[in-house]
Design a binder for these strands. Structure first.
Length: 302
DNA sequence: CTGCCTTTGAAGTAG
DNA sequence: CTACTTCAAAGGCAG
């Protein structure tokens, strides 16, 4: 009932999109998962979906962290004029208060704090690299669309793209029922702004830093994310908003609750243990040791 | 094979 | 309402 109301509101929104300016958005009914779905202040509405991806973007200017002029992440207050925000909505402060935190992983000199912000690789005004995430292409997975490519959010429970071949061995009714249930494709959460940024930039970081460990790469990406200008971040927030909209359109009945508890739950004790150095990290070292000053990183920037 | 590591953000849950 | 938890991606690695 509640959901129907929400989806009706959503459909209404889809059929009668705001002419321009999020300030004119009708306040959606208790939003299911499109809270704060408006772009940050000053970000123009994108007209065809993701059109801006093929438009020209100047390469982000290199950022000198040593001057500590890093753009802070978007915050609720930044968007207050634009959004009807509730707790936990977009633009919230990072989980870690002590940002920027010292890296747990030793970064190579080429990926050090000063160095890892790339010098412009293209002439000013050169096109910004296109997003490659298939879900960012409108139409993929949209029913009736010629491409008819399944939306990447749909994956078998195994996480693999291919479904497992049917097991013909004899099974009890309960077993096969449970198995059938388990084999139902999982609809994944739509990617948030940072995840989209990671997806786009991962390969670049891997190439630059000759790293493969995702944990280390993600640390670098987290720092780069914070170093992005608000406008650059806004681009990804907008993309994420479109992602959520598309996701809602494709899977009207889906809720993040559906996947809750499907992964092995990480106990709080374990998490604290790891953050206090009780567990090995992706480098095979231990956080309390790895968190020690990294030789080739100037402490002034940490 | 499973889960951890690591990041941010969205959304769920609990009090 | 607030604080906390889970899950999205990624790939190496330990158990």
């Amino acid at each position: 009932m509640y959901k129907e109301t929400v989806y009706s509101a959503f459909n209404l929104l889809m059929h009668y999109p705001p002419a321009s300016g999020a300030g004119q958005h009708p306040q959606p009914q208790p939003p299911l998962h499109n809270k704060a779905s408006q772009p940050p202040h000053g970000v123009p509405q994108l007209s065809p979906l993701y059109e801006h991806l093929s438009s020209s973007h100047s390469t982000p200017a290199p950022v000198d962290i040593s001057q500590k002029q890093v753009h802070r992440p978007l915050q609720t207050s930044d968007l207050s004029g634009f959004y009807s925000l509730t707790s936990g909505s977009m633009g919230q402060l990072p989980h870690t208060v002590s940002w920027p935190s010292p890296p747990l992983y030793p970064l190579s000199p080429s990926c050090g704090y000063r160095q890892h912000f790339p010098a412009p690789t293209a002439a000013p005004g050169a096109p910004y690299p296109r997003f490659t995430h298939p879900s960012l292409m409108l139409g993929s997975g949209v029913p009736g669309h010629p491409a008819a490519i399944p939306h990447p959010a749909i994956v078998p429970p195994s996480g693999k793209q291919e479904l497992q071949p049917y097991d013909h061995s004899l099974k009890t009714q309960a077993e096969s029922k449970a198995e059938k249930e388990a084999k139902k494709p999982t609809i994944k959460k739509p990617l948030n702004a940072f995840m989209l940024y990671m997806k786009e930039m991962r390969a670049k970081v891997i190439a630059e830093c000759t790293l493969k460990e995702s944990a280390a790469i993600n640390q670098i990406l987290g720092r780069r994310w914070h170093a992005l200008s608000r406008e650059e971040q806004a681009k990804y927030y907008e993309l994420a908003r479109k992602e959520r909209q598309l996701h809602m359109q494709l899977y009207p009945g889906w809720s993040a609750r559906d996947n809750y508890g499907k992964k092995k739950r990480r106990s709080r004790e374990k998490h604290q243990e790891s953050t206090t150095g009780g567990k090995r990290n992706a480098f095979g070292t231990y956080p309390e040791k790895a968190a020690a000053p990294v030789p080739f990183l100037p402490m002034t920037v940490l």
